[in-house]
Amino acid sequence: MPDTSTPDTTIAEGAYNYAYLDEQTKRMIRRAILKAVAVPGYQVPFGGREMPLPYGWGTGGIQVTAAIIGRDDTLKVIDQGADDTTNAVSIRRFFARVAEVATTTCTEDATVIQTRHRVPETPLKEGQILVFQVPIPEPLRMLEPRETETRTLHALSEYGVMQVSLYESIARHGRISKSYNYPVMVNGRYIMSPSPIPKFDNPKLDRSPALQLYGAGREKRIYAVPPHTPVKSLDFDDHPFEVEHWSECCALCGSKESFLDEMIVDDAGKRLFVCSDTDYCEGRR
């Protein structure tokens, strides 16, 4: 019997497998992805591998992307909404090298978008796959550090601890003070971490026509939100969920609708606001 994990011969750059991972690892990740799609919001454990980039720098997203990407794809990689941040450049370069894939900065042209901390402003469409890099996949982790405990809480849909935490925030501050990685309920069953995106982006996850895949490499979890799936940001009747807003508009494109980054532009502390989504901003100028 042949060894099914033997690297195939069509290897980019000769020394490594196509898309870096060996075929057996890809199959393992692909099976985990299908389970994740079948149970939306549930964190599927997978045999995460060491990647050539450090844990915490996108290895989960990279493994998911490596398991799905092919030569017909067009890949976009963003970090903080921008295509030209160093880590985004580094990951894009990695896939251009090992997967011979076309890359783009244009949201509309991309078939696979790997992201850290943002969802593009341009609405996604059916057929696109958004791959999130996830540092801590467990939404209850900061409330309960033990995996054995949180796993039971998910199994029982026992989410009181999260409600209490949000309510305490209201009691203390008069509003929910959580600003990013804001927990969501997926299809009425699992509370899920949307990864550290600003809560501004949460509404974009709800019933999105695109497929959302979430990869946590160090924690070895994959989860998913299929297209058209309800994703509700947790809130209370008397304290409904709301997103950030700015009184300023983008200094470059004038947008009043996008997420703005604040920059300090002189020693006196003068502020300037520009779109975090560089592709969206350039398209409007």
Binding site: Y55, T59, Q80, G81, P198, H245, F259, L260, D261
Partner: peptide, 21 residues
């Protein structure tokens, strides 16, 4: 090592969210 050092990566979007709040 990876996760401790990932704090070097940009987090300005999350920080902006915190600033707003």
């Amino acid at each position: 090592s990876g996760f401790v050092q990932h704090l070097k990566l940009p987090h300005y979007v999350d920080f902006q969210s915190e600033l707003v709040v």
